[in-house]
């Protein structure tokens, strides 16, 4: 079992070409071990979104190496990246990004659809997860019929459905009121306790401070890291 889930080595990322090229990441090295719960903070334009995209295999580094769960993913093509996203990464977005025309269960099933799970296994697995996030009573509702907090819980269930090595959350509480935000953070806390590796991007210093480890970005570089004395948050 690989202990280093994320291993970034001098990762750089350019946008544009030639004279107009803009280097957004200027050599980020970062190691995240299994079971860690890491917050990435930084002002807008600090490069944290780009880092997030690379961590989530939505984008490739221009230079440097990225090993995810023991596999070098920095040179993969579009197809390879799609497979890695499908198999090893779970996304939770700020605006939930549920597919409006699908029901709750069908939304959770989407990643399994792309790993070609048979229908029955898929249904069973989704039902388990939705029960775990307390949404068993909303299975055939559509996202528009749910509250923001419920939507985000569906999104968390969807992120977990493929047993990802890395759970990536991008401002997961950004669109929620404080009560729902706390509920979602409680779920993340539980997942962390259960041994999941979670990376969470946030603006909210309160949330970041509550996590065992915080990585601060500025101008495309990691400028500060903070580790709490104990390994477990909340």
């Amino acid at each position: 079992m690989v202990e280093r889930i994320v291993e970034l080595e001098q990762v750089e990322k350019d946008y544009g070409q030639g004279a107009a090229a803009l280097t957004v990441l200027k050599g980020v090295s970062l190691v995240i071990e299994r079971g860690e719960f890491v917050a990435i903070v930084g002002a807008s334009g600090s490069g944290k979104t780009t880092l997030m995209n690379i961590l989530g295999c939505l984008d490739r580094p221009s230079r440097g190496a990225y090993r995810l769960d023991g596999h070098d993913v920095s040179k993969l093509n579009d197809y390879g990246l799609s497979r890695v996203r499908n198999q090893r990464i779970g996304f939770v977005f700020q605006s939930f990004n549920l597919i409006p025309q699908l029901t709750v269960v069908e939304n959770v099933e989407v990643p399994l659809l792309y790993s070609r799970w048979p229908r029955r296994d898929r249904r069973r697995r989704c039902l388990e997860l939705l029960e775990a996030v307390g949404l068993s009573h909303r299975l055939s509702h559509h996202p528009t019929q749910l509250s923001g907090g419920e939507c985000q819980r569906v999104a968390v269930a969807r992120a977990l459905v493929n047993e990802p090595a890395l759970l990536l959350a991008d401002e997961p509480t950004g669109n929620l009121d404080s009560r729902n935000g706390e509920e979602v953070m409680r779920i993340f806390g539980e997942l962390h306790s259960a041994g999941r590796t979670i990376v969470l991007v946030t603006h909210n210093p309160e949330i970041a401070l509550a996590l065992p480890r915080t990585v601060e970005m500025r101008d495309g570089l990691v400028v500060r890291e903070r580790r709490a004395a104990t390994g477990v948050a909340s």
């Binding site: 579009d78 990004n97 597919i99």
Partner: peptide, 13 residues
């Protein structure tokens, strides 16, 4: 947006 979500969740081209 839907296409983006599906791609993020692992849909290949």
């Amino acid at each position: 947006r839907e296409i983006g979500v599906r791609r993020a969740l692992g849909a290949t081209r």
